[in-house]
Design a protein around this nucleic acid. Structure first.
Lengths: 201, 201
DNA sequence: AACTCAAACTAACAAGCGTTAGTTAAGGTA
DNA sequence: TACCTTAACTAACGCTTGTTAGTTTGAGTT
């Protein structure tokens, strides 16, 4: 098989394995049509092979979805844990959350579509995913509540505030691909400004 | 068949037709699992009948999706046309857009899920839907640009501002069902406050 | 009592689904 | 040269899909 990198695993340079290529291609298709509407034959065609050949590399369609979603969910959990434990102000913590979403999403817009839209098709890992999500949102809300208590942010319904910010951050995967000219840092800055300070003059 | 209303169509009182019941049930299922993952047998079971019986009332699965999505898209278009032509200030227009989304979404949270997540499975009507959406977003951005020009709102990237607000409004369908105690008016007010004035003290 | 009609039913269809089993081809290693 | 590994293949499976054709049921109307 032709490889896109010249050095193999033994020389420590990261070569994209066939399995990783399949998962990446699957994520792309899942973003376009959703998990359920993508068939293994669609995926095979996109890879230039036959459907049965996919099974030399992956265990099942389910497993591909799990690989895409769980790794991303854990990445968010890890980022939130760092932010939570840091000693920044509330506003700074919120800026860091914005930056976390921009960074992860910019790196993997396709996977973020599955995370947002296809998590309900997880089977064994559904409970685990829901647990991670619940924890993330609870940590987020706690940060907002602290900010209200310490008089750093306005005393507004914390759930509405979180919902509002998180909705925007969760939709980034739709929007980042259309704005290739803007850097992650610029986007995170503008977004922080809009979300935190509003747009009223 | 048992009917849930006592007066029939001839007496001018709106009776929910069997077709409307099916579409409403379908929207509920589509929200839970997405259009592609819901089978006609799932829908039939939810209605308490056999799959073949559905076809006495509807033409096809496709047609159900079209009915759900297009009517909502046209409702938004109509609302935007009114707002656009009105002589309110930019801030007031933005408040009206928030209220429009809250109102339509509160009335039909299930359908809003399809509008947001399953539009790509439209077939004949896909181009029409995309045209309505593009027009809506263009009108939205024009309002923001006017606000910047007239010095009513801060001079920030208009696309980021629209994206930020619209992402939140488009996610309302996920959130409204969890907050049944809050009224549409209260929600619209708090949301306007957060989206327009921010949360910074 | 006879008729109408909405709304259900059974049975079946062709196509497509995810997946398995067993085989082949080519390149690197012993 | 013989072997091993990787990655493709063909063929087929049992099941599910959306949809159709034709039939039955039961309540309301004439």
């Amino acid at each position: 098989m032709f490889k896109f990198t010249t050095l193999n695993n033994k020389s420590q340079l990261k070569t994209e394995t066939r399995k990783e290529e399949i998962i990446k291609t699957a994520a792309k298709l899942f973003k376009e049509k959703g998990y359920s509407a993508v068939t293994m034959r669609d995926l095979a065609t996109a890879m230039g092979i036959k459907a049965a050949s996919l099974y030399n590399h992956i265990n099942s369609k389910q497993d591909i979805l799990k690989d895409i979603i769980i790794s991303l969910a854990e990445e968010f959990t890890q980022g939130m844990n760092l932010i939570k434990k840091s000693d920044h102000s509330t506003i700074e913590k919120l800026n860091l959350i914005v930056a976390l979403h921009v960074e992860i999403t910019a790196k993997n817009t396709f996977g973020m579509a599955s995370l947002n839209n296809d998590w309900m098709h997880l089977e064994e890992q559904l409970d685990y995913y829901l647990q991670l999500r619940k924890k993330y949102e609870q940590d987020f809300i706690d940060i907002i509540k602290t900010g209200i208590a310490t008089n750093e942010i306005l005393d507004t319904n914390p759930e509405i505030v979180m919902f509002s910010i998180l909705s925007t951050l969760r939709s980034l995967y739709l929007w980042i691909p259309k704005k290739e000219e803007i850097t992650s840092v610029e986007l995170a800055e503008t977004l922080s400004q809009v979300l935190i300070n509003g747009i009223n003059k």
